[in-house]
Write a protein that binds this DNA or RNA. Structure first.
Lengths: 333, 333
DNA sequence: CCCGTTTGCGCTAACGTTTGCACAAACATT
DNA sequence: AATGTTTGTGCAAACGTTAGCGCAAACGGG
């Protein structure tokens, strides 16, 4: 391992000079800085993080806590944040909670004891009170989801509007029997989405028969079962509005298994967008969520506050609007 | 922050005694250990990781270097490894190279300077020589891909066999004009795959017209263009064998845009499996790769060697066999 | 020519933990 | 009783980086 002392020995100067040159200290001449930087690059010098941290300098490690990295939502977030942090020489430590509050708590503990500069998290459904206590001492931001317990700092999407738009689209197509398949109202995001659905129905002013399938946790299986239940109804709905990413593949698979024609037999509008959605039958109409942009914005904001010792305790929230992309899975009833 | 010295002061002993007591050193009396542990718990002492790491003690951080976490291959790997390491109290630091050797080098430098316990990486196409030099000093394993320069420790899939099987399937269906769309032969994995394709053709003993579209880097765009080129041929192939994940979506989209009927007009067999593949037309026949199992095996092996100070310099490789899953995109010509 | 200021750099002391060595006391072996 | 051996503890030196302080040399204004 090449240290600051090695560089100093090469250039016949003191370690402090090298340290200051690398830190771009104004007391060091431009000429010396040039030589130091050159020699450092030449020797492949990289500052030792442990030593730096021991001097009380903030670490360049940022914790990212997500439910499951295999979900494209979260891998998109991880990618965007990683890119964003990389440019500021920060690194990302990945933690998965599997939506379990105890896992979440454990990760939060470990991250703080590892002296991370901050934590960006997609909180679990009902965070543990201890998580809130520990997070108070570390800069943190919630992303995508929001648990009031963990603070008022949040970057999210406009869940209500997303479902308002997808529902409105279905209503405008003329559907009178509409079902919503989404997550439980107990979660802020779930509540916002179903609210968007209801608001759209209400403000349409039309007589619309509504079914709500609210499941916790959302999953392909729940999506499948919800579809089965809905199709067995006397006045089966002519359109499905999905309000949770995890439900989607189940809904699609069940419709496919039942050999229904889309959109003739039933219209479907999804939530979020994934690679395969455009390949399914006539293509799945869905609300695209600007997750990547959201994560980048969150990362930039977070970095700004970390570096400027900004106050992250002030409540704020940034809400990013969704965008409906119409494919073939929606039509007139 | 409460340090080892604070505990020492409370108990009127030296910091070293406290340190040893906490480390369960056999030279410390049971009585003293009890008192120290009690006082530490009482005072809420947590060891400072930075200081510990500076003493050269192995950290509980493992670096994971992948091209792009959004790719389901790599997010699957990240998930499996994360689960695996979690059970041993290790944490994962995520780095993305974007298949750029300079990014890769930078990450390797940063990870080593962060005193990670080890590095698990999916190497880029042609790693930088410096990467190899630095990695020599850190326990590391290559996963999925293999760069001989970076060592002989590798967990991979049987690329040759994967393409042998998918090609064999196509040949058995009776196709005589077959095209391969994959990555360049310059990469070990790419070479193994095209070799599998050729071997299958050769050992069929039949007269088969073959086209090879080898692109670098693989991408949806390359997949699209390859399909366009192949379809404009006089004796256009009746079957496409894909040999790179990144090509797949482009191939599918182009076939869809050209309004070809699958498998009547053309048969397609994919590489790897993703969520949407089963939704495309009659479902994409493809070779499933046991990526998750591979990553778990790799993680367990790596941990075993880290913890037992095992010798990771011995050459070895674990190769995991693929599995063909037949859906509707392949049929007789 | 003198004195104050600026510029550029080195010395040294931290940061919290671990560890080799020393050392004293207690105990067991000749 | 003298000599080893074990047991329990303290001292001090690292690990690599940063920052306060000091000290020259150069510079500029009177």
């Amino acid at each position: 391992m090449v240290t600051i002392k090695d560089i100093a020995a090469i250039l016949q100067v003191s370690p402090s000079t090298v340290g200051r040159a690398l830190a771009d200290d104004r007391r060091i001449s431009a000429e010396m800085k040039r030589k130091v930087n050159e020699a450092a690059a030449q020797a492949g010098y990289v500052a030792n993080r442990a030593a730096r941290m021991m001097r009380g300098v903030q670490s360049n490690l940022v914790g990212l806590i997500v439910p499951d990295i295999r979900n494209s939502f979260y891998s998109t977030i991880a990618h965007a944040l990683s890119q964003c942090l990389l440019s500021a020489n920060y690194q990302l430590t990945l933690c998965e909670t599997d939506d379990d509050r105890m896992h979440e708590l454990r990760h939060i503990k470990e991250l703080t004891s590892a002296n991370v500069a901050g934590i960006i998290l997609v909180p679990s459904a009902k965070p543990h009170p201890d998580s809130a206590r520990i997070l108070k001492m570390t800069p943190h931001i919630q992303l995508l989801r929001r648990a009031p317990l963990l603070g008022d700092q949040w970057f999210g999407i406009d869940d209500r509007r997303a479902l308002y738009e997808s529902t409105e689209h279905i209503i405008n197509a003329g559907h009178k029997r509409i079902a919503y398949i989404g997550g439980t109202e107990e979660l802020p995001t779930g509540a916002a989405r179903v609210q968007g659905f209801r608001d759209a129905v209400k403000s349409s002013g039309q007589a619309i028969t509504v079914h709500e399938e609210l499941g916790a946790p959302s999953s392909p299986e729940f999506g499948r079962e919800a579809v089965r239940r809905l199709l067995s109804l006397k006045d089966r709905p002519t359109a499905l509005v999905i309000g949770a990413v995890q439900n989607t593949s189940g809904v699609i698979d069940e419709i496919q298994d039942q050999a229904l024609s889309v959109p003739r037999d039933i219209s479907v509008v999804g939530f979020g967008d994934e690679l395969g959605y455009r390949w399914w039958g006539p293509g799945l109409t869905t609300v695209q969520l600007p997750v990547s942009e959201l994560a980048t914005a969150c990362g930039l904001w977070f970095l700004h506050h970390l570096q400027n010792k900004g106050d992250l305790s002030k409540p704020y929230s940034f809400i990013s609007p969704p965008h409906l992309v119409v494919r073939g899975s929606t039509g007139t009833p």
